[in-house]
Amino acid sequence: MSGTDAIPEFPKRSAADGADVSLTNMSALTSGPGVRSLWEVAAIAAVAVLIIGGAEFLLRFFQVPHYVLPPPSTIFMALITEFPHIAPHLGHTLVELLAGFAIGASIGLVMAAVITQVPFLEKIIAPYILLLVTTPMLALVPLLILRLGFGYEPRIVAVALAAGPMVMINAATGFRRVDSAKIALARSYGASTLQIFWKIRAPMALPMILVGLMIGAIFGLLTAVGAEMVGGGFGLGNRLTTYSSMIQMPQFFAVVLILSILGILIYMLFFLIGKKWASWEA
């Protein structure tokens, strides 16, 4: 039986191990804001009306000056009238976000897939990944600008640095979720390591990968805007600094609103992908 040494042994695991009940579980994404009843939708809308209406009323009633906080209606008006001027900046921010995210997420995914196959390597690298995750990449932006100038490049690098480790750490959690019985199943049919990766490990990891991609994208957005605030004359972050320095608060808050909407769109995108491809876990 010496020929079977190539077959690794699988640590015993209870079935419960497969369904880890962590905060970062995919169910947060798929079963969170799931299908809502009409009544719930109405209630959410009512709360929104109450908050916006209440703010509008209070701000006007107490005559809070616009440079402190403009009422919602003024912000909406500014959003509409100022949008043609903001749109190109939105485009710049999106370019940085997409490029940086694509680079960071790809590297993060590949690294997660590779290091989880080699437990020793993973142990060595883990502290550095943690360092990358916890270090605010924004802190590096002045340095990046010094090296790469005032164009897209430093921002794209910053976004990649912010998104990559987030994607990686979550994807690695996913890839680590080995279900020895499922791998044994594939092996019993003679599956190769590559087949086991694509047909068992990757689908098992997908929910966590999606969580990582979502968190990475949101961190990427924050970092892109932050980097734009540091230097270079374009992007939504630049608009924030410009408008606030000119005390154009309605326009300023219009940009804040756009950023909120961007964040929600990112969340919804991954929520829908999760719903379609990873709902088996919920």
Binding site: M1, S2, T4, I7, E9, R187, S188
Partner: peptide
Amino acid sequence: SGLHSLTQGEI
């Protein structure tokens, strides 16, 4: 099933 190798003996 051939999934595990034996330390000694054979199937």
